[in-house]
Design a protein around this nucleic acid. Structure first.
Lengths: 145, 145
DNA sequence: TCATTCCCTATCAATTTACTCAAGAATGAG
DNA sequence: CTCATTCTTGAGTAAATTGATAGGGAATGA
C-alpha cells in the first residue's frame, strides 16, 4: 500500500529543480547527490519525466535538467501517474473484472472507488510549488528537530 | 499502490459471513466457493482473522466460522490493518527515516501524511454492516447490469 | 575532434505476493 | 473409544514486481 520508489525519487528531483533559480540547469550528478539517489537510477526516472513533458534537458558541456513549465502547474498526481502508470487504485477491489458476486461485493467496490477518488483528487490538487512552500513556513518560528 | 489480495479476500469472507443468519456457521469449503478463493489460501486468512478477534471458529462436524462480534462493530480499516499489518502509508515518503533533506522534503512528508490520514479515517469509519447495506439500495430501482 | 552530458536498452538480484502442500490437533457422533 | 470431520500450523514455491546496475550510443559545443 505504497507508492514506488520511482515516484518518490521523481518527486524529489522535481522539487529540487523547482527550488533552483529559473533557467538554471542541474546535472544528473548534482541531483543524485542532493536527492540521495544513484545516478543510473535517476537517469531512467528523469528520462521518463522528460518524455512526460515535466522536464527538459540539454546535452553536452553545461547541460543538465530543468523544469519544462512552472512549478505551480505541476501536480503530485501528474508525476505519480507518469511514473507508476496510474494513480490510486486501492485494490483489485476497485476493478470488478472476473471477481465473483458475493454479498457486499458491489458495496465494497463503491466504497473503495470513493476513497480512490478522494485520494486522486488530493494528489491532483497539490502542486509542486505548494509543497515547496509548505517546507518553509513563513510566519511560524519552526523547530529544527 | 493497492491492497493485498489477502485483505481483499478477508473482506470478502467477512462480508459473506456477515450476510448469514446469526449463529449460523460457514465452513471454509463453503466460503471458498462463494468468495472464489482457494480453500488453502482462505485457511490462512481466516486463521489470522480469528486470532485478530474478528471471527470465531468451531472444529469438528458441523463446525465452521462465524463473526465474533456484530457486523456494525467491524470496520474495513480493522480488517486491512490486521491482514496487511498496517493501514495506508502511501509511501516510504511518509517515513522520513534515513531520507536526505532536500528542498520540499518536509512539505512532501506533511502532504502525504495528510492524505494517509484521510484514507485511514475513511477506512476506520466504514463498517461491514454499512458496506452490506450499500449492496442493496432500498429506495432506488437499481439496474441489473 | 574530443570531453562532457544526456539517451536508451538489457539485465539482474532481492523482495514480495499469492498460493500449495502435508501433517497435526480438536470436536463430537455413534 | 474411535473415527470422520473440520479447523490449525508451518514450511515451501512459482511468478511477478521492484529497485538497481551496466554499458554502449548520440548530441553538444568548445
Amino acid at each position: 500500500m505504497r507508492f514506488s520508489k520511482k515516484s518518490e525519487y521523481a518527486l524529489r528531483a522535481v522539487l529540487i529543480l523547482a527550488d533552483c533559480p529559473p533557467n538554471q540547469t542541474l546535472q544528473i550528478q548534482e541531483l543524485s547527490v542532493i536527492s540521495g539517489v544513484s545516478v543510473k537510477f535517476l537517469e531512467q526516472i528523469l528520462l521518463v519525466m522528460k518524455k512526460g513533458g515535466i522536464l527538459r534537458s540539454k546535452r553536452g558541456v553545461g547541460g543538465g535538467y530543468q523544469l519544462d513549465r512552472p512549478a505551480r502547474s505541476i501536480t503530485l498526481g501528474e508525476i505519480i501517474q507518469l511514473m507508476d502508470g496510474g494513480l490510486c487504485e486501492l485494490s483489485g477491489i476497485t476493478d470488478s473484472h472476473g471477481t465473483p458476486e458475493y454479498p457486499g461485493s458491489a458495496g465494497l467496490q463503491t466504497c473503495f472507488r470513493e476513497i480512490d477518488e478522494q485520494v486522486n483528487e488530493a494528489l491532483q490538487e497539490r502542486t509542486i510549488e505548494e509543497v515547496l512552500s509548505m517546507d518553509r513556513p513563513k510566519d511560524i518560528l519552526a523547530f529544527e528537530i
